[in-house]
Design a protein around this nucleic acid. Structure first.
Length: 377
DNA sequence: TCTGGGGTCCTTCCGCCA
DNA sequence: TCTGTGGCGGAAGGACCC
């Protein structure tokens, strides 16, 4: 008999916030929000304690990157504007993001997982998929629990992550990536959920369609307009009807997803496709009136991108810019060059050419530079 | 008080060419 | 030669995700 396929999805619990709590243990149990700019660093007082900024009176354009669970209880969620978060939880502590530190903990937890199960798909800084099918013991029953073996393996992974980082995570273990991603959220934080297809009607079908990875706000709205709100309601739909409304490929995928069907393999990381730098201004800028300031920002972004490319050993043949106007409309312009480039002067020149092809009547809120069609140098 | 920054992938359109 | 078709690379936009 072929081994049963067991795919785990591991998600670190409130990752950035939890890393910050490791260095500021006095904040444990408090509403803490990570986000905003460089300001709002904690200040070390003469008596050895620290003074933290709070959300009260926050002014500016930032959004919440992560919130601790107590902050979430006040209705604060990632992606929310900090101004709005300040209204909901003015007493919450505000900390700036420290990506260097999060990346370090990310490396640590992934190494801890790899000691137990080496087949890993990277899905960003705080989550991974793991193939447990071939891990010794994973296929065995334990006592009356037919899935006791794989449960034990997942628990061992959780213990190892905890030992290596001091952090908790949540794991979902199922026959595929789609269900594993859903399952890891069912018992968050610090949870372990094992599901098979037999559990679908009871555990997955009652969930809102948004819980399916790949159904975003647009698709969810469109489904709601058809009276489809839960995964179960989606599962009950006729495939051809879904294809009529969502196109052949996406319609079929929706239908499969609701049945828990997903045979995508794990992708053990390949080469990057693009690299970019972008920034949102403190205030909207006008192409003519604020020309000097815009030029300075563009030069900085170009230099950062060139540094990133060179440090990682890549060059890009397609250089592009991204502009966001005051009304949030976004445009991009690309230029493909005869040869890949990685130096600031060449990127700057190409970006300048792209910029000429945009109507710059409206004021701008964001500027970005991108290199694609990457090759190793 | 609106709405960050870094990505991936997909679709559509267009020009070029066989 | 005319017309059609289809592949392909590049460009633009959009949806989605962490």
């Amino acid at each position: 008999m072929p081994p049963r396929r067991w795919i785990a999805h591991l998600d670190m619990d409130a990752f950035y916030a939890s890393v910050e709590l490791l260095r500021y243990p006095e904040l444990a149990g408090r509403a803490v929000v990570i986000g905003g700019g460089r300001r709002h660093q904690p200040v070390l007082l003469p008596d050895g304690t620290r003074r933290f900024a709070t959300l009260a009176g926050y002014a500016g354009r930032g959004v919440v990157t992560t919130a601790t669970y107590p902050a979430r209880d006040h209705g604060v969620h990632s992606g929310m504007g900090l101004m709005k978060a300040a209204q909901r939880a003015p007493q919450a502590i505000l900390l700036p993001t420290d990506f260097e530190r999060y990346r370090e903990y990310s490396r640590r937890f992934k190494a801890a997982v790899a000691e137990v199960a080496p087949v890993i798909e990277d899905r960003g800084i705080d989550e991974i998929y793991i193939d447990l099918s071939e891990v010794p013991g994973a296929q065995e029953a334990v006592g009356h629990d037919p899935f006791g073996g794989v449960r034990a393996v997942a628990q061992e992974i959780r213990n190892n992550v905890r030992r290596a980082t001091g952090l908790t995570c949540s794991i979902g273990v199922t026959p595929n990536k789609l269900l594993a991603k859903i399952a890891s959220e069912l018992d968050k934080p610090d949870g372990l959920t094992v599901l098979t297809h037999a559990d679908l009607p009871a555990r997955v079908w009652p969930l809102p369609v948004r819980r399916i990875n790949g159904i975003g706000p647009k698709a969810a709205d469109k489904l709601a307009a058809l009276g489809i709100r839960t995964v179960g309601e989606l599962a009950a739909q006729d495939r051809t009807l879904l294809q009529q409304h969502f196109g052949r490929a996406y319609g079929r995928w929706l239908h499969d997803a609701a049945q828990g069907v997903d045979d995508r393999p794990l992708v053990t990381r390949g080469e990057p496709v693009s690299m970019s730098r972008e920034t949102t201004f403190d205030r909207d800028l006008h192409a003519v009136r604020d020309r000097a300031e815009l030029t300075g920002i563009l030069d900085t972004l170009v230099r950062q991108l060139a540094t990133d490319l060179q440090r990682k050993g890549y060059a890009g043949r397609t250089i592009g810019i991204k502009l966001r106007f005051e009304d949030f409309r976004t445009v991009t312009r690309d230029q493909t060059l005869p040869q890949p480039v990685a130096d600031a002067a060449a990127i700057r020149h190409a970006a300048g050419q792209c910029l000429k092809r945009v109507d710059l009547t409206r004021r701008l809120r964001l500027l970005g530079v991108r290199a694609a069609a990457l090759s190793r140098t």
